[in-house]
Structure formats: C-alpha cells, structure tokens
C-alpha cells in the first residue's frame, strides 16, 4: 500500500504538469483519480482529481467558444472571474453550479470582477 501511495503521488504532479495537449492530460488525471479511489485514505485526492479533470474540460470548451487561450490552468476562481470580466455571466453561473461554489465566495468573486472592469452599475444592482 505504501508503495502504491508513493506511486500515486508521483503520478499526480506529472498529471498536473502535463502537456499542452489536453486530451491525454485529462486522461492522465483520471487515471490518477482511479488510483486514488482504490485506497480508502485518498478519497479527498480522488475527488480533487475528478474536479480537476472536469475543470480542464470546461476551460477547454470556454477557450474554444471565446477563442482566447486564457482559461486553461487557472483556478476555478480565476475562471469565474474571467467569465464575468468578459461579460459572460451565464458561463460564470454555470461554473459556479458545476463546482457548488458557496454563495459567500461567489459574491466576493463577482464583486472583485465587476470592480476590475469598473462596471459600477452592475455592482450596484446585485
């Protein structure tokens, strides 16, 4: 078990380092997730890997739809903020729902993002 644990560890950084090719990268992360889920102690890591893969997929889609390579490898918070800054409220809400972002964090993010683009009107409204 110990041996496997260390192997898992080695796997994961490799997965997050990854290559610019996202397909294989997501696969690698999913593989790591499976390894994590085989042991009881790593439920947390397994969940993290699962979400990471999901996030990468969404970021990939976002990049395709906005034609801007600014999403991949940013955190969930950054992704949401970028969406709001770009005025894409729907996408932002979708990411929020997808990862069950708490309302508290959501308001912080939204306020920050709106302040960045100086959209005081929208800030006042919500």
């Amino acid at each position: 078990l110990l041996w496997k644990e260390s192997w898992d560890m080695g796997k994961n950084p490799m997965a997050s380092k990854g290559s610019p090719l996202h397909g294989p990268r997501i696969k690698l992360i999913e593989k790591a997730r499976n390894l994590f889920s085989q042991t009881k102690e790593h439920t947390f890591e397994s969940k993290a890997a699962e979400e990471h893969a999901k996030l990468l997929k969404i970021q990939h889609e976002l990049e395709a739809s906005t034609k801007q390579a600014i999403f991949v490898d940013s955190s969930i918070n950054d992704t949401i903020r970028t969406c709001i800054v770009l005025g894409n409220n729907r996408a932002a809400t979708k990411v929020k729902a997808e990862f069950k972002v708490s309302d508290k964090r959501w308001y912080f993010l939204k306020a920050f993002a709106l302040a960045t683009i100086k959209d005081w009107e929208a800030l006042e409204k919500f």
Binding site: N12, S16, E45, S75, N77
Partner: peptide, 21 residues
C-alpha cells in the same frame, strides 16, 4: 478539514494538492 482544502484548491488551483499532501 475537507472543506477548507477544497476551497484552497478551487481558489488557488488544483496543482496545490501536492503542497497540501
């Protein structure tokens, strides 16, 4: 413990799972 770790990963990126570990 699990909540704060997930918040951290969400906010700063999943690569920090190694740091937490």
């Amino acid at each position: 413990f699990d909540y704060i770790r997930m918040e951290l990963l969400h906010s700063y990126g999943f690569e920090h799972v190694v740091t937490l570990n």
